[in-house]
Design a protein around this nucleic acid. Sequence first.
DNA 1: GGATCCTTCTTCTTCTTC
Length: 361
Amino acid sequence: QTFIPEIRTSSADLTMFLKKPPNISFAFFLTHLSLCHGLQSPKRHSPYSTVDTERYSSLVKSAMSRVSSQTPLTILEEDDHIYGPVLKSPPPTTLTRGEVRTPKVLHPFLHPQEITEEEAETGGPPARIHLNRGQGRSAIPSVTRILQQTMSTEQMFYLERWKRRMVQELGEEGFKEYSQNLFKQGKTFHSVLEETLTSGVKWTDRDPFEMSQYPPEVCGYMKSVSHVLDDVREVHAIESTVQHNTLNYLGIVDCVARYRGVLCVIDWKTSEKPKPFLSNTYDNPIQVAAYAGALNTDANYKYQVENGLIVVAYKDGSPAHAHQLNFELMLDYWKTWLLRLEDYFEKRYKKCYKNVFINML
DNA sequence: GGATCCTTCTTCTTCTTC
């Protein structure tokens, strides 16, 4: 119907159309129908003598004339008609949204030049502020929860579809086990990484017997990130709670350290599939920007982070992909995060969200 | 001790041919 707008077929028509003998191509079918229409010398005793040729005559004529008259120019015109004018690459902030919105809050990231060395603490063990929910914090939403509850319908659709397929393949129980195993692997990897960063003992320098105590996947993940760890210095915080001082959200950062000389919020990820591009990491960059934005306003931390880093580790030990988010990218993702935050409060507090949001600023 | 919370993951078309 897109290519041949003057034809309107119902699904019943299409079903009938597809009941042609399987060894005969669609093009041949059309040609043959055209013969039946007397465009060329008619053929008797055809297997299609029962086909309602009158009914399909316009389709045949249209299809035949289009195919033969197609030139590069008409194809370009068709493309224009079907796909619309060519769009120049849109700015990253609008990628996940149909409409362009501007968040109301100023960004919490200082420009690299404005950060002086004195602001970053050096030495001492890394901070590890545990989450303590018992002190009136229960109303404060977390980064993960906000991201989960403000996913686009498209994102939810693909996740649901994936889940449905997996359940079909593995069964309800099998899928549950598979998911739990993925979580377990991720958790173990995080804890081993934590030990490594705290102790300062390189994974490769560890006692082979000790290494063999871990599941093979975890060894693979550690091998995978070893080249990234070589570029990590000055670990400032590990698994530490950060809370934004006005925007009323909290989260736990995996790691704050200097990566290639720049102070970063680092998020370690394990993945079954390769994620060579930042776009493969879905909402991870937003998560990192949210943590960094919170940390930079949190009085518990006396320094400012500049960049973010997402490290995707693989269990087969192949080199991890390290996606560094520079100042500009952090700013873009921070804006996206603010929109998600607005969405969350809007959903949660319905009409009075605006007052809630304004009160927080 | 039990309940709750934050995380840990999962997505982007799909098939054929070389």
